[in-house]
Write a protein that binds this DNA or RNA. Structure first.
Lengths: 196, 196
DNA sequence: CTGATAGTAGACAGATCTGTCTACTTTACA
DNA sequence: TGTAAAGTAGACAGATCTGTCTACTATCAG
């Protein structure tokens, strides 16, 4: 309290978390290959030795970034959905959330689709993390669909919805049109029974 | 005729075309950043000076690769579609063609989505080429849809179909499931009037 | 106060990247 | 046949990449 700490550039304790946070922003905006370790370190104000004390390699840092991204993505989406209580509104909120994401200034696509695109199958761990993330989103969608279509129909429909969201991401990335989310939602609604 | 030419490793005349062809394969399989110029040259059996006599930079080579990929993509798709004559079958053929593409051994996603993912907006020319390719595909879809839904409804529906195809590409890339194409087609059919 | 821990700055090694350049060789054509 | 164009091999420059290492410094528990 009495200490001055004017800049306080980095919180004292968790260098590691700050490193992952910085890397997440830079990799998201600039790509995994194009952004080098030195740039992450400079931006984070962290020494190289500290990085390699926490992670054995750049790919391990990327893997941790993806795990963190998965946590934040799901937490943010769930928080937004939970502002609605009616099942159909909760489902619609998923697409609204995506539209807002697409409209963010630095939007550069889905980090998991991008990692699959950059590393192809060459780095199995990263490919696996991408798969797990998409699977988690699909499971979440299935949970939102259950009140609307029943527990039997929900999984297959969740896969359809997942494909629509990936399509919206691709369209938004290439064309820059955030309206892709609404386009996807209009298609998604047609897949639901008329009672919903 | 009398000349031996046992290896004939490279066709005499068009070094440039051979270079683009080799680069297309390598970039498609390995990504744009991960594959270096030296690897392309070694694989193509072409000297570095020849490359830089034809292209001012690596990015210019990538741009030409994308133009070539666009030509081949559209020619291959159109040839496959033209084996059908009934409008609804022609439309279905687009999704069958995609399913076969996804099932190819070295499938690594769409080169245009991938270039947008790797270079983000940093290289405007490449971003533009990706946009143009997707626009061309969408226009082609609109032409296939016209006999089914009329000239007025076709453009908007073509955008929907384009989103479905991009979604299928994303799902196939991450999960490795070529069935994503059929999933997309099943959704696409629901968007058509019942008479089709 | 002391010693362990974790951080910093940055030199360094070794590889790899793009792009340039020299010197030589082959091809095509008039 | 002789000349111009185009290709080859590969050295080279300069930058950048990942990952290691040395030496120094700040923090904190006991």
């Amino acid at each position: 309290m009495s200490s001055p700490m004017p800049p306080q550039p980095v919180s004292r304790a968790d260098k590691r978390a700050h490193l992952v946070d910085t890397a997440l922003s830079l990799f998201a905006a600039g790509g995994y290959h194009a952004v080098g370790i030195d740039r992450v370190l400079a931006e984070a104000g962290v020494a190289k030795k500290t990085l390699y004390a926490h992670f054995p390699s750049k790919n391990a840092l990327i893997a941790e970034v993806l795990r963190e991204r998965d946590r934040r993505f799901r937490a943010s989406l769930a928080a937004f959905v939970d502002r609605q209580s009616v099942p159909i509104d909760r489902l619609a909120a998923v697409f609204v959330w995506h539209r807002q994401w697409f409209a963010e200034p630095g939007f550069a696509g889905c980090m998991f689709l991008n990692v699959a695109a950059e590393f192809h199958g060459e780095v199995a761990e990263l490919q696996q993390l991408a798969r797990e993330h998409k699977q988690a989103v699909e499971s979440y969608l299935a949970g939102l669909l259950e009140p609307l279509v029943g527990v039997d129909a929900a999984p297959a429909l969740a896969a359809d919805f997942n494909l629509l969201l990936d399509g919206a991401i691709g369209v938004a990335l290439v064309s820059g049109d955030a309206g892709a989310a609404e386009r996807a939602w209009n298609m998604a609604r047609r897949l639901l029974p008329a009672t919903a």
